[in-house]
C-alpha cells in the first residue's frame, strides 16, 4: 500500500511527528522520576513508533526514511523536536502535542481518506496519551510552589511552538480546523491546573521557518545524529 502523491506530504508530516517525539520520549529511559513514569513514557513512545512505521511505509522504506535522511528532509513540527528539559517540560510538550494529535486523528477517523484506518486505531491510544498529560499538568500546576513554577515556565517556553501544528499541509486539510478546539481544551486544562495561559504569540515572528518546511531548531540536528549514527556507522546491521 503506498499513498497518493498528495497524501505523501501529509504522511511524512504525521509520520515524522510520531517518529521524532517517540525518540525524544525514549530518551527518558533510565532517567524518569519514578519507575511508573519510565514505563508510561516508554509505552507512549511505542504507540508513536507504531504510527510512524505505518505512516512512513506509505511513503517509502521506513528504515531509509528514519535513518538516512538529512535534517532538512524531515517534516516534523518544531514542537516535537524540542529537548525533554525537566519533567514539566516534557509534560507540557505532551499536553500540547497529544491534544492536537487526538483532535486531528478524531477528524481523520471520521472521514474516508487514506489515513482513516490508522487514525481510527490511533485515536483510542492518543486519548490515553492526552489523559496522561492532563493528569500530570494538574498535579504539577496545582502542586507545590516549585512544581507550579516549573510547569508555568515549561508552558511559557513551548507556547511559541503551538501555532505551527495548525498551518495548512498539502493533503491534510483537517489540521487548521482543529485549532479552536485545541485552544479551548488546553486553556481548560491550564486553568484547572491554576496555570496562566500565555499571552504571547503562538508562532514566533523571529522564526526562520517551520519544521513542516524542513527548517528545524538547533537541538534537532544533535537528536537525529544520535538517532542515526548506529545505522550509518554499520550499514545493514541487524540484531
Amino acid at each position: 500500500m503506498t499513498a497518493t502523491s498528495v497524501a505523501r506530504t501529509a504522511a511524512l508530516a504525521l509520520g515524522d511527528d510520531a517518529l521524532v517525539l517517540s525518540h525524544r520520549l525514549g530518551e527518558w529511559a533510565g532517567h524518569a522520576p519514578v519507575l511508573e513514569e519510565e514505563v508510561a513514557l516508554a509505552n507512549i513512545a511505542l504507540d508513536l513508533l507504531g504510527q510512524a512505521r505505518i505512516l512512513l511505509s506509505l511513503v517509502g522504506d521506513e528504515d531509509e526514511l528514519a535513518y538516512l535522511r538529512e535534517e532538512r528532509a524531515f517534516r516534523n513540527l518544531q514542537l516535537v523536536e524540542q529537548p525533554n528539559g525537566d519533567f514539566a517540560h516534557t509534560i507540557a510538550r505532551q499536553l500540547f502535542f497529544s491534544t492536537y494529535q487526538h483532535l486531528l486523528y478524531g477528524r481523520l477517523a471520521a472521514g474516508d481518506g487514506e489515513f482513516a484506518p490508522l487514525a481510527a486505531k490511533a485515536v483510542k491510544e492518543t486519548e490515553y496519551h492526552r489523559d496522561h498529560a492532563e493528569q500530570w499538568t494538574l498535579r504539577l500546576g496545582d502542586g507545590t510552589e516549585e512544581s507550579h513554577a516549573r510547569m508555568q515556565r515549561a508552558v511559557d517556553t513551548l507556547w511559541r511552538f503551538t501555532g505551527e501544528p495548525f498551518q495548512p499541509v498539502e493533503g491534510l486539510a483537517e489540521a487548521p480546523l482543529v485549532e479552536e478546539e485545541w485552544l479551548a481544551s488546553v486553556t481548560t486544562v491550564l486553568e484547572r491546573a491554576t496555570l496562566t495561559v500565555p499571552e504571547g504569540p503562538r508562532t514566533g515572528a523571529w522564526a526562520a521557518g517551520a519544521g513542516r518546511q524542513g527548517l528545524h531548531t538547533e537541538p534537532f540536528g544533535r537528536m537525529i545524529a544520535e538517532m542515526q549514527h548506529l545505522h550509518r556507522s554499520h550499514p545493514g546491521a541487524t540484531w
Binding site: E36, E37, V39, A40, A42, N43, I44, L46, D47, E125, Y128, D131, H132, Q135
Partner: peptide, 13 residues
C-alpha cells in the same frame, strides 16, 4: 490506579 501504563501498552497498573 497506580499508573495508566504498565508492563505493556495494553495494561494499566
Amino acid at each position: 490506579l497506580l499508573s495508566r501504563f504498565s508492563s505493556t501498552a495494553c495494561k494499566a497498573l
